[in-house]
Design a protein around this nucleic acid. Sequence first.
DNA 1: TAGATTGTTAATCGATTAACAATC
DNA 2: TAGATTGTTAATCGATTAACAATC
Lengths: 215, 215
Amino acid sequence: MEEKEISQAVIGRLPRYFRYLGELKDSGIERISSQDLSGLMKVTASQIRQDFNNFGGFGQQGYGYNVEYLYSEIGKILGLDRLHYYIIIGAGNLGRALGNYTNFERRGFLLKGMFDQDPEKIGQKVREIQVRPMEELEDFIDANNIDIAVLTIPKAGAVEIAERLAGTQVRAIWNFAHVDLNVPEGIQVENVHLSDSLMKLSYNLNRYMQEHQKA
Amino acid sequence: MEEKEISQAVIGRLPRYFRYLGELKDSGIERISSQDLSGLMKVTASQIRQDFNNFGGFGQQGYGYNVEYLYSEIGKILGLDRLHYYIIIGAGNLGRALGNYTNFERRGFLLKGMFDQDPEKIGQKVREIQVRPMEELEDFIDANNIDIAVLTIPKAGAVEIAERLAGTQVRAIWNFAHVDLNVPEGIQVENVHLSDSLMKLSYNLNRYMQEHQKA
DNA sequence: TAGATTGTTAATCGATTAACAATC
DNA sequence: TAGATTGTTAATCGATTAACAATC
């Protein structure tokens, strides 16, 4: 069933290519060589060509890559050519912040619902979306063709909610809870562990200061 | 000046070790072998031992690792044994969400100030912290021993603000703006590109669906 | 002591970079 | 055609895993 199986290292670089190509496109640039893109993005031209060739040849010898075409192809690879309906579970600060972040809509990610277990929060509005009680989760997912769930609840409840989601048609969880979810294969999980990221920054900060004998 | 230079792959795993060890500690477990930790964390025992040995031997043959000791050592490596004062630049939804996230305080990251250029936002409060105008940035950093700046502003202004920060004592930028900052070496940048993360999830979701011929 | 488990070296695997023939 | 630049193979580099001697 598997195709060639692209490594996650490559996938992880695609959004950045997509961003740079979008900017090139917006500034009216028609074509670009791997060499020029390399200079811009500070990665090797070799890596750029290898990465793109994982998906078949997008370029042309002697010419380079057509910016608009490449942009659109990478968008397709990333699944941005179709709509995704998502819900946010957890209407706390972070959940509401993400719910208000309208940029995702531009990429085809449409917020359909928000959920929380706190009676205080139920009924509150984020943009046009009303916060719903957790009891309605499964029915709502069914009725609204939800395929992505964003988890912005404390770690305590996250594992259990992930299990509930596994029983629905949701096939992707964007997990902001600071815990590793254990979901059946077939459900994709992308973790955003903010405190891990902060600790990494802290490590690099402290190491640099030590190496340079700061006060 | 460089020491052994630990790879970022290893650094990236430290916070997760730290989290698991904290949980083990909290449940009263005194010691653990790389093998048992391996089962728990779903990484190889070999990798665990290699990772820890980058920093010198924390274990003991025939015994394993003392949970409390290892936890505290990794904390030190991550720089969590000292206080970090940080500011948030950009008092929008995300900035306020992060400002309200009190868990960082427990790790020694103390929010000292918030900044925004929008006159509407200036004076607003997040916890005890009042949002300040951008003009006060440099003086405030100086006066309050800030070493970390969190950037939660739109990409348009981020590059310029990063340049301003480069002239201050700030030595680490936690960047949520969707743009690559160009700072002098010596300033650490950790990017959290949420839309990149969402696109990665989208890729994996779509690939899986295609492979499994969903409707 | 015998058993367990680390620390560390060696082997493997995968990802990145270099090189160059194919070709526009 | 000559020049440019890809696509792709080969070489290198780094990270992960396996193996085992050291040692608690």
